[in-house]
Design a protein around this nucleic acid. Structure first.
Lengths: 336, 336
DNA sequence: CTGAAAGCGCTAACAA
DNA sequence: TTGTTAGCGCTTTCAG
């Protein structure tokens, strides 16, 4: 009644079935060419003994585990969650498992985890990696990153997204337009933040709109960062009529602050985000935002890994994804 | 300049350092009693060769990987994300890595993944497991579940939470109170949903409040489920003045529907959620909700696993966590 | 303090 | 169609 207390090995099963270990192995691996009778007998012995393969032993012979390894900074960031979902779906569709690890501050853990994936995984996806973190996998297992780091990557077209944002606000008639900039820390993927800003300002400048420095506060990419930046903007002598936040989370903070100050969005203030994470559809008013196809990006990353794993070279090493404007309820023509 | 193309083994390092394999192994495992000189020499050889342990070989000797394995249904559910965050923090604090797998529909993948964790992990956390999914780990590696399944678990006190919900709405003066029930599918942890409902109705009945069947629509626990249930409720001849949703996601849907119908929350309608996921603080108005300490629950689960792993028996096999009322802006006394 | 031998459980390669 | 022989890379004895 109780499960076997001691590990059952392949040899045990072989003995039980009265065959050799190899025969059992062949059954386990569904190899062809074997009498149906033997197969049945072995299968019965497996059931009866409650045998489960020892993954370590199997790995030792060089096999990989049908596994995509993912290393991400933390789970709390919606951006990360969406990417992972897309990757997960693609892995599953390809018949592979996916294991997600979060970056730890502990160097020993980092190495252990890396050593594990190095031998275990068929491919490793690095989400928002810090420089050099893919090193230990090189030449051992394929690696794809998000953002600009590394030999193979998937990324959103941030500059184009910034342009879209500016165009949308301009077309609504806004002229006093502010931008809450993303944080400068590399861990907050500063490069992508700068690209968004670049595209945004480029279009505004081309339209002859001047953006004073006071209209470009920074945020730590957290909700409270967005709140504080919004507070600063909205207490200016001449506050903006529209705010483009560098990401949705900062936009959430902006919505909160606007409400706290008694401003009605979008009537008194337009708010525009970036990313289109799931929560963006939940806010009231629902957030107008520049969508990065995060799920598709995660899926594409996995597909690149599979390609690399099968020995072929992906057509493009860096896949850039177009962004699109998602109009919801947080933007409107200026009322004043 | 390029990393070693072929796997460097312990033997290679030993040769390079002019010592035996065992000596290298001792250095790697930081075992005491060894001349500092030898240690240094070995360490240099490790660096130089770019050696990384082969995890498979190490595992084969029976060692575990300082790893907590987590199996969860999908990443999209905020409830899951929060639990994972708490678990992750606790694992990290204990010097362990954490790997998260999502449940797949594919039986082969399931087994492979289970086989992996069986030999790899020092403990396995099952989030919202389906019956029997912990079976293959039994007697091999400790298992803790969320919800009622299994020998060891962490869970929120759902019934008490339901009572809190009722008490809050009653104390505000509501009498026409509806409840959007959680789905009946086991995968939606129906048991916990029923407990919430039970506690809720118990208090209302004790207060002499009758809840007509029309005030108890079901929802599929997704946002649109919440929307539809709310629409039904709000188009009743005598609509409720307050709605208690079985979880925050359904409450989000309710907020959306209320806005769509031109109702102002909380002035025209009070909305109360359950869980207190991160997004609940983001909605406008911010959601009043019954908080389950999901992060603490995740952390506690990991601590139980570590205890079980160290051979001791946890004082309580099933840890129940109190819920608390978090008052934000979506509830107020009825206006009519 | 360091080394040599044996074996963990499995599979690849070859025999029978 | 099935069995035999090696050996994957590491660690655990036990000697030196």
């Amino acid at each position: 009644m109780t499960p076997p207390p001691l590990p059952v090995t392949l040899a045990d099963v072989a003995r039980l079935a009265g065959v050799s270990k190899m025969t059992v192995s062949n059954v386990l691996n569904e190899r062809p060419g074997m009498s149906p009778d033997t197969r049945r007998r072995v299968q019965a012995a497996i059931e009866e003994s409650g045998y489960v393969v020892n993954t370590a032993a199997r790995m030792l012979t060089g096999r990989r585990m049908n596994l995509i390894g993912v290393i991400a900074p933390r789970y709390s960031v919606p951006y990360v969650t969406e990417l992972i979902q897309g990757a997960s779906a693609a892995a599953e569709a390809a018949g592979m498992s996916m294991a997600v690890f979060t970056t730890s501050q502990n160097a020993v853990l980092e190495r252990e985890r890396g050593a594990l994936l190095r031998t275990l995984a068929d491919g490793v996806l690095l989400i928002m990696p810090t420089a050099g973190s893919g090193q230990m996998f090189e030449n051992v297992v394929p690696v794809v990153t998000t953002g600009a780091e590394g030999a193979y990557s998937v990324q959103g077209d941030n500059e184009q997204g910034g342009r879209l944002a500016a165009q949308h606000l301009l077309s609504l008639g806004h002229r006093r337009i502010a931008h809450i900039r993303g944080a400068d820390a590399p861990a907050d993927h500063a490069g992508e933040m700068r690209a968004r800003e670049r595209g945004f300002l480029e279009v505004l400048h081309a339209a002859g709109i001047d953006v004073p420095a006071a209209y470009l506060p920074g945020s730590n990419s957290q909700e409270d960062g967005g709140e504080q930046a919004a507070r600063a903007l909205l207490s200016l002598p001449e506050p903006p009529s529209a705010i483009f936040a560098a990401n949705d989370v900062a936009a959430f903070g902006t919505l909160r602050m606007a409400a706290a100050l008694g401003l009605r969005v979008p009537h008194d203030l337009s708010v525009l985000g970036f990313d289109d994470v799931t929560a963006s559809a939940l806010t009231t008013p629902a957030l107008t935002t520049i969508r990065q196809p995060l799920q598709s990006m995660g899926a594409a990353a996995v597909q690149m890994l599979l390609e690399l794993g099968s020995g072929s070279v992906p057509a493009v090493a860096h896949r850039i994804f177009e962004t699109t404007l998602i109009v919801r309820q947080s933007t409107a023509p200026p009322s004043s």
